[in-house]
Design a protein around this nucleic acid. Structure first.
Lengths: 218, 218
DNA sequence: ATAAGTGGACAGTACTACTATCCGAGGCGG
DNA sequence: CCGCCTCGGATAGTAGTACTGTCCACTTAT
C-alpha cells in the first residue's frame, strides 16, 4: 500500500506519517521506483504503537524513537528499553535553596535501605532510581513525610504487580514480541495504574466520608 | 521579604517568579507602597509546591494553576482537586482507523464490570474513568490483551494503596493541609510508583533470568 | 492525456515555559 | 540630598516540541 492508504488505515495524517518517517519513528517503505515506496501491515502496527506511546503513554517523540530503537535492536536488554521510556526524568541538579543536598542524601539513604530490605537486585544505572530519589527528596523538602512513610507500601504493591507482569510477558513467541509487549505494557500501564489509583481514591474517600457521617448521625 | 530574597530562598529565578505571579500560580505579595510588595514564608512554600508539581510531577503550568486553585478554594471537593491533576488526558475522539468504536465499547464494558465487581462507588464524571478506558482500548487495538487480563491485579493493588493513603491523609489538622497533602501525594506518588515499578521489574526479570539459567546449567 | 497521488525538502505554525529588556518609582548608604 | 541598586509591571523575544502547509518533479490510475 502507499502512504494514502496507510494514512486511512491508521488514522494518522499523511503529513504526520512523513514527519515520523523523517524522525525515524517509522521505517521507510520498500522502494518500488526511485520515488515511490510501498508500506505493509508492519507499518500500520508501528504507527499504532507510535500513537499509543505518544498520545496515551505521554512520551515525547524523542523518547518514542529511543524506545522503538531499543525494541528493534536485539542487543539491547529488556530493562534498558524500559528505562528509555522514562521521558520525564527530573533534572538531578540545582533545585532547591535551603537544605537541598541534605534532603537528597536522606532520600538516597531511604531508598537504598528499602531496596536492601526487600532484597531487590537493581543496578544503580537504572534511571528510575534517580527519579525515585528526586521524588522522595522533593517530598521532604515540602515538609510532609507521609509519602516517605508509605514507601514500603508502595514498594510492596509494585513488586507484586511487577512479578506478575514479568511472568506474563516472558513466555511469548520471539524476543521482539516479548520486548514490545513489555514496553507497551509498562508505558501504558503507568497511565492505567494512575487512573485506577484516582478511581480507588475516590471510592475510598467516599467510603470514609459515609462512615464518618454515619457515626455523626447514629 | 522582597522578590530578590524570595528568589534566593526558593531557588527560582526572579523572572520565573514574575511569570508565576502573572499566571496566577503564586498569589501577589502584600503591597507596602504603590509599587512595592513583600512576600512571606507562605510564598516560599507555594513556590516549592509549584516547582514540585511542574518538575517532578510533570504537570503543565495550566494544570498546576487549576490544582492550586482547587486547593485554595474550600468549596472544591477533594476528589475534584485530584481529578484536575490529570493534565495528560488522552483525547477521547478521533483516534484509530479500523475497529475504533468496538475496542472503545469493549473497554468501557470491561471497566464497568471491574468497578461493579469490586464495589467501587465512583462517579462517571471522574476523568480518570475516560483515561482508563482509553488505555484499555488502545491496548486491545494493538492486538495484545495481557494488560486487560491484569486489570484486576492492577485494581487490587491500587485499591490497597489508595485505602492506606486516604486513611493517612484524613486526620491532619485543617482542610487546607489535608487537601494539599493529598494533592502532592497523589501527583508525586504517580511518579514514585512508576519509578518503583521500573525498579521492581528489573529485579523480577533478573531473578527470572537467573532461575532460567540455573535450570539450563544444573 | 490528464488528473490525482507520491516522495522529498523546507518553511511556517501553534503552543508552552520561560527569559530579557525596558521603564519609572521606591529604598538606602553616604 | 545624591547616586546607585532593586523593585514592580509591561512587553517582547527565545528555545523547544510536534506537527502542518506548500512546493516540486515525478508516477500512477483512468
Amino acid at each position: 500500500m502507499r502512504v494514502g492508504e496507510l494514512s486511512r488505515r491508521s488514522g494518522v495524517s499523511v503529513a504526520s506519517i512523513k514527519y515520523y518517517l523523517r524522525e525515524g519513528l517509522l521505517p521507510p517503505g520498500e522502494r518500488t521506483s526511485p520515488n515511490q515506496a510501498s508500506y505493509d501491515e508492519g507499518h500500520v502496527h508501528r504507527l499504532r504503537m507510535v500513537r499509543a506511546l505518544i498520545d496515551v503513554g505521554g512520551l515525547t517523540v524523542a523518547a518514542t524513537r529511543s524506545v522503538l530503537a531499543a525494541v528493534d535492536d536485539p542487543e539491547v536488554p529488556l530493562h534498558e528499553a524500559l528505562g528509555r521510556a522514562s521521558a520525564t526524568t527530573p533534572a538531578p541538579g540545582g533545585g532547591g535553596g535551603d537544605a537541598d543536598d541534605e534532603a537528597h542524601a536522606d532520600a538516597q539513604r531511604a531508598l537504598a535501605d528499602l531496596v536492601a530490605q526487600r532484597g531487590w537486585r537493581v543496578g544503580p544505572r537504572n534511571p528510575a532510581w534517580d527519579t525515585a530519589v528526586e521524588v522522595l527528596a522533593t517530598y521532604t523538602r515540602l515538609g510532609d513525610d507521609d509519602l516517605a512513610r508509605q514507601l514500603e507500601l508502595y514498594a510492596e504493591a509494585m513488586e507484586g504487580v511487577a512479578r506478575r507482569e514479568v511472568a506474563a510477558v516472558v513466555d511469548r513467541g520471539d524476543r521482539a514480541r516479548t520486548v514490545e509487549g513489555a514496553v507497551v505494557g509498562t508505558v501504558l500501564g503507568d497511565t492505567l495504574l494512575a487512573a485506577l489509583r484516582r478511581l480507588a481514591q475516590e471510592h475510598c474517600s467516599a467510603q470514609l466520608l459515609e462512615r464518618a457521617e454515619g457515626r455523626a448521625q447514629g
